[in-house]
């Protein structure tokens, strides 16, 4: 009897289930599995670009100063009839590494597997904050667009390595890259916000939404690894974002967080914050 009532209730609930349209199902979805798939396809799309850059790097190493097949359309001074000059080579491996780490490995290993597996493995229907989850993906996608846009600005994309060591990355004249490096920094700051939202979601879900009886010691190791990753991201991202902001300020506002010398013409006295302390430090 009670089984029949329950089945009827379930059937009634299903009958009133609102059918979501294409946009809500595939684009602005709040379903953890769909967001996991979105992260997967974002990662795979970026893999094509990062992989192409890798092939170009390998071509240059294997056959130096010969034209890369199919790339003769790229204008000078970025390539010369398909031949990669040193500046472009630096840009290629900088962007290759950046794309592979931040837009392939992280979205697939953390974004895709985390979103897809965590709710299934801990026995809950969805993540703790589904809309935040959706926002995390789309902020990450915007970050990818900003990173790819840097290929099309004058001077080309960032060329100071994916680690962007200052002072090489702190002044445009050292690499010859102006806007490209700025967009690189802005993109990673946006991506940091995306990852932060993801981390908060993972941690909250794992702490609060485990099925009854699933203690931490019964939790699958996959979930444990994603849990630890989320905690590490939560600790690291504010520091990384602050460093990126300081680098951007050095490049655009004339501060000297990383620069060896204070350029008096651009940055004088106490009007430029950070300068006096830095001057004492370097003197």
């Amino acid at each position: 009897m009670s089984d029949t009532v329950a089945a009827d209730a379930a059937h009634a609930a299903h009958a009133h289930h609102e059918e979501l349209g294409f946009l809500r199902t595939y684009v602005f979805s709040t379903d953890h599995k769909m967001i996991g798939r979105q992260f997967l396809f974002l990662g795979l799309f970026m893999l094509l670009i990062g992989g192409t850059l890798a092939m170009m790097i390998r071509w240059e190493l294997a056959w130096p100063e010969t034209a890369v097949p199919g790339f003769s359309f790229i204008p000078e001074p970025y390539m010369y009839g398909g031949i990669i000059p040193p500046q472009t080579y630096n840009a290629l491996f900088t962007m290759h590494a950046t794309i592979m780490i931040f837009f392939v490995v992280m979205p697939i290993m953390v974004g895709c597997f985390g979103n897809f597996l965590i709710p299934l493995m801990i026995g809950t229907r969805d993540m703790a904050f589904p809309k935040l989850n959706m926002l995390s993906f789309w902020v990450g996608a915007v970050s990818g667009v900003v990173m790819l846009a840097s290929f099309f600005v004058p001077g080309g994309p960032a060329a100071s390595g994916w680690t962007a060591y200052a002072t090489l990355s702190a002044k445009a004249q050292y690499t010859g890259v102006d806007w490209g490096q700025d967009l690189w920094i802005i993109s990673l700051m946006i991506l940091g916000i995306s990852s932060l939202m993801g981390s908060i979601n993972y941690i909250t879900t794992i702490v609060n939404m485990r099925a009854p009886g699933m203690s931490y010691f019964r939790m699958p190791l996959t979930v444990w690894s994603l849990f630890v990753t989320a905690i590490l991201l939560l600790l690291a991202l504010p520091v990384l974002t602050a460093a990126l902001a300081m680098l951007l300020f050095d490049r655009t506002l004339g501060t000297s967080f990383f620069c060896r010398k204070v350029e008096e013409s651009r940055c004088s006295g106490s009007t430029c914050f950070g300068s006096s302390a830095t001057r004492r430090f370097i003197s």
């Binding site: 000059p85 040193p86 500046q87 080579y89 630096n90 060329a159 100071s160 390595g161 060591y165 090489l168 050292y174 690499t175 010859g176």
Partner: peptide, 10 residues
């Protein structure tokens, strides 16, 4: 042996 700009390789 540290990337230092477009002339690093030379």
């Amino acid at each position: 042996s540290q990337l230092c700009g477009f002339g690093h390789s030379g």
